[in-house]
Design a protein around this nucleic acid. Structure first.
Lengths: 244, 244
DNA sequence: CGTCAAATTGAAAATTATCAACGAGAGTGG
DNA sequence: CCACTCTCGTTGATAATTTTCAATTTGACG
């Protein structure tokens, strides 16, 4: 079959040797379809599986005890999901599908095997988790210190960029695939306020909206509004050990 | 000398072999004192060093372009700092000392060497970064979905717990070591509002304050108020590969 | 056509920020 | 030892942002 989605992702960073590619393919041997709306990991459930997302868009979220939800991250093909099962007996987050998806479940032992046999892949996994961490801290700063409008703009830009990584034909018009409530749960806002912020962005001529499609009319202004930083730029991986 | 702070931290999770201990000691060979208020890494600066904190309390933060600051994390002995230099040419965050500190700088090659020679340490590093990630997502959810009072309470609890890891004699009274402005920058609030929230927590009998000291009067209520989850509990590391 | 989730809008309320002032305490230089 | 300055904490009054509540409207789909 195709090979490894995660390897393709890492392959955007450095070139992967055939041996490494084979090792990574082993964690994507099995495939499992997941329907839109379905959950593959539920918060506080006892789970041990981890996943690579092969196809579709998913999200990870936490529930707070007042019933509100915080979306932690949107997930795209090549992303690893549920790595917290590396550490915790009970899942700290819920992982659910935003569209029809295909995931590849794998065991901790598979990952452990890769770390042992391929030191450079171990280093690349650290790289991957540091990029993720940077994205997370950007979102933390956005939630703590930016306006509602900026946070909504940031979600639009981020989704566009991630979707574009899967489909280069996307430029400034795309299908968002999120409800306003989901945008709210990602940005820490109510759905009502998200609606008003979208309208405001539209009224100011930054975006246009039509039946689920978002178009960037003034991308420069949108980037400025959102305080956007692309964490997939400016990498320096010259220090990586030699591949086996 | 003493050995490795980071090894001690990992040693809380599993037992470290002498060979592993030696390898980890190599990243803490050099020591550098850092005075209170000093900065060891500045956002957007070109840096390549990483650090282990050996002594004192530090913080990492980001500046937004309106001049406001978001504190991302408080750092305690045994924490690794500046791992983003593993990946980025320019630092995404500033790292500064909240008290007089001692740090151990090390190079990327040192880390790379450990990953190559000690697969189990590579796995433990992943464990460490997943624990950090969980703490980060908890804070994300707190900023997005909890009240000002809950966020302030969470900072108090977190600081107490981290300080207690260094000094077991601390129970429910401790020196916070943060200004109200710093609490605000960590929680996404203004210093003025932090002040009001502290007063409210005090008026409700959850805490007491006296010249820089915080005392937990009703810890149970404080934990409930803050929605607190201890991410150093409930770990499952049985899957780790065997040590060399 | 009926139904249901999602989007939209207005009005009122709650939360948090901003502005301004003052007080307490720590260091500093004369 | 005494001003002097600075940072930090505290408080009140007011303003801005965001939420809540309550309708409607729209669009997709059986």
């Amino acid at each position: 079959m195709s090979g490894s989605c995660f390897a393709e992702r890492l392959g955007d960073l450095v070139s992967i040797t055939p041996a490494e590619h084979d090792a990574l393919a082993r964690i994507e041997e099995r495939e499992r379809p997941v329907r839109r709306g379905a959950t593959i990991q539920r918060e506080n459930d006892r789970v041990g599986e981890m996943f690579v997302l092969r196809k579709g868009v998913m999200m990870s979220s936490m529930l707070l005890d007042d019933g509100s939800r915080q979306i932690l991250r949107f997930l795209f093909p090549g992303d690893m999901m549920g790595l917290s099962s590396l550490v915790y007996r009970e899942a700290p987050e819920t992982i659910a599908a935003l569209s029809d998806c295909v995931v590849c479940p794998f065991e901790r032992s598979a990952l452990s095997g890769i770390l042992t046999a391929h030191p450079r892949l171990a280093a690349l996994m650290m790289v991957y988790s540091q990029i993720e961490r940077a994205a997370l801290t950007d979102r933390l700063a956005a939630l703590g210190r930016t306006s509602a409008k900026a946070r909504v703009a940031a979600v639009l830009i981020d989704m566009r960029n991630r979707l574009r990584m899967m489909d280069k034909s996307i430029t400034d018009s795309f299908v968002l695939g999120l409800t306003q409530e989901e945008i709210g749960d990602a940005t820490g806002l109510t759905a009502v306020h998200v609606n008003r912020m979208l309208r405001q962005l539209e009224d100011e001529g930054l975006i246009a909206r039509a039946n689920g499609h978002i178009a960037f009319i003034n991308e420069r202004a949108l980037l400025r509004e959102a305080n956007y930083v692309d964490r997939y730029q400016g990498l320096d991986l010259s220090w990586l050990p030699a591949p086996l």
